[in-house]
Design a protein around this nucleic acid. Structure first.
Length: 476
RNA sequence: GGCGCCGUGGCCAAGUGGUAAGGCAGAGGACUGCAAAUCCUUUAUCCCCGGUUCGAAUCCGGGCGGCGCCUCCA
């Protein structure tokens, strides 16, 4: 059993092996924080989370770093419009992003470096490239990376850069590049940059870093010159990651990334999510509509990260139902009566087989869809076994519960669901008391009273389930 | 124009050579005072046409349909 991951650079599955045994260095390309992240962004970040959690679950020491881009064209433009500095613009959105991530159960990264905290390192990096003949200052005050100096350029995307339709969609007339394909490492500051405090001193005058530069500099600073994994959305393959490889390897002379992994973009109601289509959906909107964050998490990980995923309200409802099945199952196990003299139920075997199947699914390039199927197959098997064996020994019950929770350490579904379903003690006590009253009524076959109590609780969002061992309740 | 992806039951979605996981929804039954939860049964020759093979959803060729990147973008 070994973990196999899809590497964009080779377009094939490769056995994963970290550079340093037992430790995995992962860098994820994070969001640009000039507005709220949308659920498409979160599909990608949930993919990162699956990688993060599964590597951890597999026993690796995971060093996971994700940047927050706080200076680039969009940030500056947005700050100018708002009449504030880039820091004033990005600080609240950075906080909102981390809060949203937490709501979805995304595990915190080891650190979230921001570009503006690494300006000095970026200047040094650019200088290093200039000194090495891989970059040149131009008359327009910018410093460009010379693609001609890096023979491997285009390898990641698998393109021959000479065939690029240069200038087809972007005017290059305004730049003083030696080669139209060259990209900016450092840009000269404009009046607007100065206005929003997005300009710094450098050997080439006042300016600011180019977008591609930050990831190289920060990942190397935080994790070293060679990363085990570098994650991002599919849109970043070219030119962003291609440029990162060029500048990083040109500067260090070492392989930059061992495994490039890219997640597919989310669709919404059958269409690409785009501002022009007006179909951007933020997490906050969905929560305001009353959707459960755990159901959102379920939907966003219910398809393999490299496959298509069309986000629909209907699908979200289905995910909510699926999640409820999981919660009911957990509740059934927790409330299970144990009997030291019970016959063998086979639960321990079912549990260990499920965990192994789960491992197999996740080892296959983090196939969360398959892993989810394993979990639900496990649920069915155990439910059937429990129907056949009303009482089990404690070890069997504990094995089943442990397996469920172990798999959930990776999927994070029950974890998120329980976090959003905390019931205050007063309500819990009230419900317990009502259930007691209802039990007495039922014992007297006073079903009118019994049903009245149940209806009242239903009105409060409490669902009752009568079983042989008493009445269970849950937040519906 | 270049590079690439996808087309599996009503909906969603696994499955890369041996005769189709899982979720949701639907139907029938069991259980229940009635429910809920659960269980059982039930719904697919995998877009089409050829080819390779003892055998293909899975490989090859062609076609039809949908889509992505090549530009800031998760």
């Amino acid at each position: 059993m070994t973990l196999k991951v899809h590497n964009t650079a080779t377009r094939s599955l490769q056995a994963f092996e970290p550079l340093e045994a037992g430790i995995v260095r992962v860098y994820g390309c994070g969001p640009t924080i000039y507005n709220h992240a949308h659920i498409g962004n979160f599909r990608t970040f949930l993919f990162f989370d699956l990688v993060h959690r599964y590597l951890d679950w597999s026993g690796y020491e995971v060093r996971f770093v994700m940047n927050l881009t706080d200076v680039d064209d969009k940030v500056i433009e947005s700050a100018v419009e708002s009449g504030i500095t880039i820091t004033e613009k990005t600080t609240p959105f950075g906080e909102a992003f981390l809060a949203d991530s937490s709501t979805l159960g995304i595990r915190p990264a080891e650190s979230y470096p921001r570009a503006t905290d690494y300006i000095g390192a970026m200047v040094d990096f650019v200088q290093r490239l200039v000194d090495g003949g891989h970059a040149y200052p131009a008359d327009d005050g910018a410093v460009y990376f010379s693609i001609a100096s890096f023979a491997e350029y285009g390898r990641l995307k698998g393109i021959d850069t000479s065939t690029l339709k240069v200038g087809a969609r972007v005017s290059h007339d305004q730049y003083d590049k030696e080669d139209a394909r060259d990209f900016a490492l450092w840009k000269a500051a404009t009046a607007e940059d100065e206005q929003v405090e997005a300009a710094w001193d450098s050997p080439w005058g006042r300016g600011r870093p180019g977008w591609h530069l930050e990831c190289s500099v920060m990942s190397i600073a935080e994790l070293g010159e060679t990363l085990d994994m570098h994650l991002g959305g599919e849109d970043l393959v070219f030119p962003h990651h291609e440029n990162e490889i060029a500048q990083s390897e040109a500067a260090t002379g070492r392989p930059f990334v061992r495994h490039w992994m890219h997640g597919r973009h989310l669709f919404v109601e059958g269409k690409k999510m785009a501002k022009s289509l007006g179909n951007f959906i933020t997490l906050r909107e969905l929560l305001d509509e009353g959707h459960d964050p755990a159901a959102i998490r379920h939907l966003l990980i219910s398809s393999h990260y490299r496959g298509d995923l069309n986000f629909t309200r209907q699908g979200l409802e289905a995910s909510g139902s699926a999640l409820q099945r999981l919660l009911d199952f957990e509740s059934r196990l927790k409330g299970l009566a144990v009997d030291a003299g019970a016959d063998p139920s086979g639960l321990a075997t079912i549990a260990s087989e499920a965990v192994e199947s789960f491992r197999g699914a996740m080892d296959n390039d983090f196939n969360s869809a398959d892993a989810l199927a394993v979990v639900f197959g496990f649920v069915s098997s155990v439910n059937a076994a429990l129907d056949a064996h009303p009482a089990v020994i404690a070890a069997d019950r504990d094995a089943a519960l442990a397996a469920l929770h172990s798999m959930d350490e990776v999927l994070g579904l029950l974890e998120v669901a329980s976090a959003s379903r905390v019931v205050d003690d007063d309500l819990a006590a009230y419900v317990e008391q009502k259930i007691q009253e209802r039990s007495e009524a039922r014992a007297n076959r006073d079903f009118a009273t019994s049903d009245a109590i149940r209806d009242e609780l239903t009105g409060k969002g409490i669902v009752l389930e009568d079983g042989p061992d008493g009445t269970r309740w849950k937040v519906g």
